[in-house]
Design a protein around this nucleic acid. Sequence first.
DNA 1: CAGAGTCACTTGTATTTTGCAAGTGACTCT
DNA 2: AGAGTCACTTGCAAAATACAAGTGACTCTG
Lengths: 117, 117
Amino acid sequence: MSSARNVAPRSDCAIAGTLDLVGDRWSLLIVRDLLFRGNLRFADLAASTEAMPTNTLTDRLRRLEECGILVRHPYSERPRRYEYQLTERGRDLAPVLDSLATWGIAHLPGTRRLGAG
Amino acid sequence: MSSARNVAPRSDCAIAGTLDLVGDRWSLLIVRDLLFRGNLRFADLAASTEAMPTNTLTDRLRRLEECGILVRHPYSERPRRYEYQLTERGRDLAPVLDSLATWGIAHLPGTRRLGAG
DNA sequence: CAGAGTCACTTGTATTTTGCAAGTGACTCT
DNA sequence: AGAGTCACTTGCAAAATACAAGTGACTCTG
């Protein structure tokens, strides 16, 4: 699984650049969970309602860490275990999540803001 | 190429639902071009700076049409040729694009708002 | 202290999506 | 007649994703 998106940006457009980092079906859901439910561990994220595969989760956590959207820090030595926390960069994605939620509520019947996790 | 995303939604979360429709690397760039440059034809979209493959473009246009984000209407009979236009649903994605652009400008050096197309 | 369970992954494999290049059909223009 | 435009489609390789199962380092229970 690729792990890094170390390719050149597609253009100098800020929208395209942002989509290069979080423009997939899962990344922003991780950010959502961390934003609304606080720091979480691997198992918490894996158990989120959308149930993403664990290998994809591992990959996305690495990517998001690489581009500074989240950090992990150990909550236990021996065995080494980590929890994941948004950085300010990550928290700055809140308006994106908010606008996505607003659109969804307006146009997708049966969906609702928040919850779901 | 798949053409339709007719699977069940992953959850009742509005964010997840919206990402099911436009959560990929290309869809929102099409919306961006249509929003900032007006109605466009296939060749115009294909020639956009990010140069997406034409088969992917065809697929995305069909998907976006299916979920009511854009419509196509003919600008020429014989040969039948279409141009693509955002619906209100599609125009409502403007805040999403705006927040993505804002994040990109703040966190991705060298990117800029608009332009790029 | 053997065995079961938890946690955070990793591995293997199948399926799906994406990307690139080239081709096609309907037409217009020279 | 021949070249060019337009909006795709096709073929195929490469990458991403999904699903299931396995692993290593521990802890907890009987």
